[in-house]
Design a protein around this nucleic acid. Structure first.
Lengths: 207, 207
DNA sequence: AGAGGAAAAACGAACACTCGTTATGTTAAG
DNA sequence: CTTAACATAACGAGTGTTCGTTTTTCCTCT
């Protein structure tokens, strides 16, 4: 951030740029989205973009960091139901918020462009394992389930599902796909009675 | 292919270029890999690259088409075991063959660059469902399982796992991850006795 | 209240560079 | 000597970024 904004219109255009950048990054990826395309989609000129952001890298990082941490709160459920709700909220947010979609794509493409900021992968994995262990403490998990391995697999599966849904153009089916994932996973993850009383309605994602 | 090769050394350099292109595409993606980088990694100059390939698009398509269809044969197993073996061979091939890794990345990135050639997604999904239905015909599947939904999920999960393993730098753990996927999926997919007699050794991937 | 001015914000042209591609030159094989 | 196989150099378009300029906003002083 080369300048702390001191006028309200600055914040407005800064937001416009962030949204425009998200749209461009989502469509073309980091390398494919040009600063001119970003400026065009933001409704501003190149100079304005460089007034608010130091360069392309920081713009991408700003998009990644703009994904709200709103995901975690708002959920008063506990145990596995909380884990389910987390994925449903994630699915809902993905196809409601373009900034979130761009952030996921950028985080996945990252590696070479010095963004680092693992932000999504290890963070999600840690979060998943945390709730899994809480579920195990409440006796909801099947005896053989390893929380680390399950969390690792779920993070990969979720990003893969998002990828698959985006490429096939059916991003709006993400919620249903998440539900089907749970229907497949639950028998091996928990006891039948726990699985039976879980609420798998994708509409739980809209908090 | 702008020229059918008429000398043997031409075939050698053509292979060098294909391998160099695969390495570059794997590291930087389609847009990020420059023709100069490809030429450098191939040990030749730009002119040689353009003598053997018409352009970047065709070079990428050649890399994709170079992935051997060796996956399907060599497996004399049937039913779900065959499906398991298919994923294990895939995992083994991924971290043994750089051309395969590049092909997967290119196929996943495709979309905008006019490569099309879906080659991986719908094809894999069709293949998976085919073996799933064969497994159901042999009575190995649990009554509630939908072959279409399972195949769709597995394709997404597999590409997601590959992505996750590559980003975290642990591509060699792919086989173990595939095994853990099956351990999670099988309880909800088949009957306990069928699951018990399956062989999940990742070394089955090395045909 | 209203003119003056400084700083903030946005503009737009230009720079240095890399890109994919092509044209031309040079070497090796038959 | 002819042509295939490669090397070298250049072109035009597009890239990220910089910079001088203009416009807008806000604060001050009479």
């Amino acid at each position: 951030m080369p300048a702390e904004p001191k006028q309200q219109r600055a914040l407005k255009t800064r937001d416009d740029i962030l949204r425009g950048a998200a749209l461009a990054f989502e469509d073309f990826g980091y390398k494919g989205a040009s600063m001119r395309e970003i400026a065009a989609r933001s409704g501003v000129t190149l100079g304005a973009v460089y007034f608010h952001f130091a360069g392309k890298q920081e713009l991408a990082r700003a998009v990644i960091l703009a994904q709200p941490d709103v995901m975690v709160p708002k959920l008063q459920s506990v145990g596995i139901q909380r884990l389910v709700d987390l994925t449903l909220v994630w699915a809902h947010e993905i196809n409601a918020n373009p900034v979130m979609r761009a952030a996921v794509r950028l985080a996945v493409e990252q590696q070479a462009h010095g963004i680092e900021e693992d932000t999504s992968f290890q963070e999600w994995e840690v979060l998943f394992r945390k709730w899994l262990e809480e579920a195990r403490d409440e006796g909801e998990l099947a005896p053989g389930a390893s929380t680390g391995a399950v969390a690792e697999f779920m993070v990969g599966a979720m990003t893969g599902m998002q990828h698959h849904a985006r490429l096939t153009g059916k991003i709006n089916t993400l919620g249903d796909r998440v539900v089907r994932m749970w229907q497949l996973l639950l028998p091996g993850l928990t006891t039948p009675d726990v699985a039976a009383r879980l609420d798998l309605d994708p509409r739980r994602g809209a908090a």
